[in-house]
Design a protein around this nucleic acid. Structure first.
Lengths: 214, 214, 214, 214
DNA sequence: TATGAATGAGTCTTCATTCAT
DNA sequence: GATGAATGAAGACTCATTCAT
């Protein structure tokens, strides 16, 4: 990093500025609202200039996706604290996933609205750099493993299937809220159910779904 | 219904034809592939004619969404058989949700890719006709109620929260597979995990998540 | 033609107007100067309007090409007069090819500047309508046949090869002059050789090339 | 040459490298595929650097054209062998023209796809260096002269006109094949006519066109 | 000397929508 | 009751070229 020439750093700065603007467009107007033209207008560059920094719109979007997962991994890592009991930590991690997704719902939607290359558990491509998405997946996998070992999860559970189940469950909640901000927003008798409370309830279901019966 | 004038019936027929063509376009080419102009070409009407039957593209899509839920309700109803034990019936119903969603994944995506008005449990608008979406929701609600009564679900569970949890869980799986056909498609040791098997596993988790502990 | 509805005739008129404008653009600025945008500006339509009449730029250009060959066939037919001796008529026909090509040199260039589907002598596609290009080719073929029969051409000549030779020879002159207007434009001693005279000389060579030796 | 300073030689080397890359691009992707920017990428120079060596894209292309003719002259010279009879040598020379053109058809097309300055037989500009194009022209001219003297060509033929006729004839064949690779590719009865055989036939016509009648 | 950065103009094409007829 | 005609805006992307550094 510090070995970069001034020119390289300048270029990197501009890239960052463009990415940031794109990020904001995506957050505010959704995947369809992100166009090179408008990005150029907002950044005060010409459309052609954008192409100096990103070979195609797709590659730019790809970076935004990766950035989302990088953020997710950061947040997940920060949410882990080995000194607290598994039950608490696990729920905290799952909540972090949801909350990160909902910080910028449109990002989360965009990430899953284009062909998504699958995750390889047993990555044959040992040479390829691990993506943030894989790292996020591994976080869930570690949760499952630890849950089976010490957290009361059913010891017979297949780890791969369970990890994916957890992921799918989280995905469902994130997508639902992303599409319907304020979900579930209903009145239970006199009490008004807040999204945050529903998240807790739902995460309880996810965890319970993996726990040993008795 | 039978009180409609011939003119009204004709109009309704054309509407249906247009909707059906739109339905097919949506199924085959996705939400972005559905354009008024191409719809006009396929139906041999003019673009302007489409606008005589639907005030905007959005309203047309709205009807397709309703149609999806209507189909969902049909399928769910057909999957119910009071003579079989709850455990089996419940899993069958949940699987039906997933399978209906995956029959036409693009429909399912479209249904949830635009602002979705929330479901009101205690519908204040008694006058408004019940939507299919509400009926589908009520199907899940009935499952939860019956599960609590006789199916081993935790009797302390809040029905509203539980129903929504179930829905969100199903939503997650449907969305994930819709975006990544073949999910989870991974190898477990030597065995290759099929989507169908994963669905079973996942539904088990959903059900377990609602069951009483011991 | 006369059975067309007024609407059809109107549409056909507009098509013709657009084609004519395109024709002129092509003639004046060459194949690269022909763009949908500029065509729209010139015709006072929007770019999108052009696409109501032609599904793509390529199809429009294709019509211009066909139009060239149609004109060529017309001119060739008009140049034929059975009452004059073969030698004269033949030379007249060849000259007509050249002159038609040079009326709008850029058209001739354009016609041969994109992938050109070959001519099938023994057309298997009896059902397909004969293109003007094929008709033009057949004109040359008839010349060769008649030349062999009564015009002093070498009776041993293969008709297919000879026809193509004639075509290639004409093509060379048309292309050369199209690219270098005024070719050959040189001074022979005191006399200035005019293009027209060179054409005569060249056509003599073409004809002589096919004639019997003694 | 050897009097050039090291700096001049270095500059000349770079020019050559750029030209060579451009040559390859032209050969592989055609005239439209040759862009300064992609040339810069391939040569690892900046676009601006290219402009240090060539004032414009056009001038660069101009050099490529000259290079083509230089190659043509080389090949033509190599094809001449005074020990063989004129008839054979003449045909060999003409074939060499065609074959050189078809080695890199896109070059030949490019050479004749932009305004081509005419050839001056009686070059008034004695001071200007003779171009390769002129040398190639003179090769044909010498053929004609020798043909008239000893090769059976019609002794009355005007040399200037005849040379140009020969050139135009060759040009036609080269252009036709360059645009329609595989021309004439047709079936004569059961035999399939190969391009190479057609070239022989055509060259026969060119030669016959210049020969004395009996 | 070479380049990094930038641009203005241009490419074809598609869209949802309107309005006079 | 339907349509033919039209449009303005937008989409991604590429080009030859320039200029301050």
């Amino acid at each position: 990093m510090s070995t970069a020439t001034p020119a390289e750093r300048r270029k990197e700065n501009i890239r960052r500025r463009i990415l940031q603007a794109a990020d904001e467009m995506l957050a505010q107007e959704g995947a369809l609202g992100l166009s090179i033209r408008r990005l150029a207008e907002i950044t005060d560059y010409s459309p052609a200039a954008i192409y100096r920094y990103f070979p195609s719109k797709e590659s730019l979007v790809e970076e935004l996706k990766e950035a989302f997962f990088a953020r997710l991994v950061d947040n997940l890592s920060a949410s882990v604290d080995q000194s607290i009991p598994f039950e608490t930590m696990c729920r905290g991690g799952l909540r972090t996933y949801i909350e990160t997704a909902l910080e910028k719902p449109n990002h989360y939607l965009a990430v899953f609205s284009a062909p998504v290359p699958p995750i390889d558990t047993q990555s044959d491509h040992a040479s390829m750099p691990e993506t943030s998405k894989q790292r996020a997946f591994e976080f869930l996998q570690d949760l499952v493993k630890e849950g089976k070992a010490t957290g009361g999860f059913d010891r017979d559970l297949n780890v791969d299937l369970s990890t994916r189940s957890l992921w799918v469950g989280l995905h469902g909640l994130a997508m639902m809220i992303a599409h319907m901000p304020g979900f579930p927003n209903f009145r239970d008798g006199d009490a008004f159910i807040k999204t945050s409370d529903f998240i807790d309830f739902y995460i309880d279901r996810l965890v319970t779904g993996l726990e040993a019966k008795s």
